[in-house]
Design a protein around this nucleic acid. Sequence first.
DNA 1: ACAAAAGTGTTGTCAATACACCCATGT
DNA 2: ACATGGGTGTATTGACAACACTTTTGT
Lengths: 236, 236
Amino acid sequence: MPPPAVAVSVDLVLLTLRAGRLCVLLTGRPDAEVWTLPGGFVDGDEDLDRAAARQLTRLTGVTSTGHLEQLRTYGGPHRGPRVSGVSVAYLALLPDLPGTVPSQAGPVWWRPVDEVELDGDAGTGRSRRSEQDLAPDHRRIVADGVERARAKLEYTPLAAAFCEDEFTLADLRRVYEAAWGVALDPPNFRRKVLSTPGFVVALGRRTSTRGGGRPAELYRRGMATALHPPLLRRSV
Amino acid sequence: MPPPAVAVSVDLVLLTLRAGRLCVLLTGRPDAEVWTLPGGFVDGDEDLDRAAARQLTRLTGVTSTGHLEQLRTYGGPHRGPRVSGVSVAYLALLPDLPGTVPSQAGPVWWRPVDEVELDGDAGTGRSRRSEQDLAPDHRRIVADGVERARAKLEYTPLAAAFCEDEFTLADLRRVYEAAWGVALDPPNFRRKVLSTPGFVVALGRRTSTRGGGRPAELYRRGMATALHPPLLRRSV
DNA sequence: ACAAAAGTGTTGTCAATACACCCATGT
DNA sequence: ACATGGGTGTATTGACAACACTTTTGT
């Protein structure tokens, strides 16, 4: 007998840093009462990675920069009533996009992930419910994506994906501080990053001072794909 | 218009330790000229994790012990001619099963993963091709699963999933040595494991000496879900 | 203008920790 | 032969102090 056929969609967890906070891109379809992750259906003969990259370009206009990787696949009845099929989630890390999102895909918003994590915490604490919460199944996908990103900062040089092509060590440090919610010692962070071969490469130039203070050296991301030893967060 | 429908299968990368080598379970369908990973199609309303667990039980008879997690989803034209749809791969870690595999699913074999990694290395080195190589797309899935397992040994107490309920520290050390292909210093390994809270708990009993030597203490797996700090392999 | 203060990035020091390597002992 | 216990030197890390360069503020 022929195998059962299922609808397969690719959904994106798009993370960036805005005003020192880790944010995720959400879309609000006009006919829906909750926010959702951007995504779309894929064909059976379509490469999943390529489908995800296409979604990313459609949403942001960016093509090569940043980072895009498969996160996890969600399926089955967990996804709620009237929703069937499986969803292949992808995680993308981007620098803060200039101005508003030039979306060709309807209304989109950047929302801080710590607010998303509070959605659905019925009862205690939260005084009022947002006008539009994130769909429960998508909330779990966001949580998984954020946890993946936090973990990957430890043992990969992926923090640079949140920065522009040229960045200072303070920029890089602020990525860790925003994602992990901790304060890092600037001298120690500097020593660690510079002593890891291939993490960053110095450009020999400095920032034209922005807002006061000593101009910082500029770096770009290096060739390394892993950090040895890793940059561990203190506790978990 | 309705979303395109796709065939979705769940495939298992089942790893175990046999004779000090990391091995993967392969199936040989009578009508196929290559080995494949065990798996099967899933329904759209079926929970993926549950489908994978069902496959695992069908193949090995085990139910609760060990470890099972989603690995990655593969899809698109990469999978080769005449193969369409997406495949959700799961990774399972098991202790060595007693005797032969009590499979209710046709012929199965345990194959050392280092041999699988050599499949398809056309040309150099390998003198003769195995009678049956692993299908190319499944070979990549195995490689991803092995790499995931090797990485997870570093920062989780998952090595115990390769052992029986009760094991010695030498058993646990041999898991790392087989998976990483390195020799570990027994005293240092012992110190590290015992100093990590929740990794193992002592049972206060000892092995009745097996094969000579001082009887070793018995342990079972602890409650910890992560290792802090991790047990890092030296290089990568 | 000039000097002082504050902000930011860089360099240096020291102690605590973790780890590799080795030796010794018990069964 | 193997499990276990202990010791030592080296590398990494955390905490903190000191310095360098720039803008802002006050007189």
